[in-house]
Design a protein around this nucleic acid. Structure first.
Length: 112
DNA sequence: GCACTGACTCCCA
DNA sequence: ATGGGAGCCAGTG
């Protein structure tokens, strides 16, 4: 299947998330240039080939939570991977203020 | 080609 | 604070 070029953009954005930081689906969508495609980010990550080493676990939803049913194997895997990078959870929730990836785009927003 | 689904978010009651 | 509904748009059957 010919991959949608949007996938590549999203993957590259996700790959640029620094270790120990997290970003939300909405953030990734916005940085990739698709402001209203948060859902599409999830689709892209699901479709991402594992050999690309996409740090998909650094992407969580806007509530600071993992977007898998709590207790599912995917949920536990993502949580564990994040904890190994130093991201701490408080009752299954990440403190976005501490770990959210600050981007140059965001800085423009802060400035105003 | 149509209808449904989804690793989301925003907005309003 | 919380829950429900609409918007989004590509993938999947």
């Amino acid at each position: 299947m010919r991959l949608n070029p949007k996938f590549q953009i999203i993957w590259s954005v996700v790959k640029s998330i620094p270790k120990g930081c997290i970003a939300t689906y909405g953030d990734v969508a916005r940085l990739a240039g698709f402001p209203r495609n948060a859902r599409f980010v999830g689709t892209a990550l699901k479709a991402a080939p594992s050999e690309l080493n996409i740090p998909w676990h650094r992407v969580i939803n806007s509530q600071g939570k993992i977007s898998f049913p709590s207790g599912s194997d995917k949920f536990q895997l993502q949580k564990r991977l994040l904890q190994e990078e130093g991201v701490s959870f408080v009752s299954a929730v990440v403190n976005l203020n501490d770990y959210r990836w600050k981007t140059s785009l965001d800085e423009d927003l802060w400035r105003m």
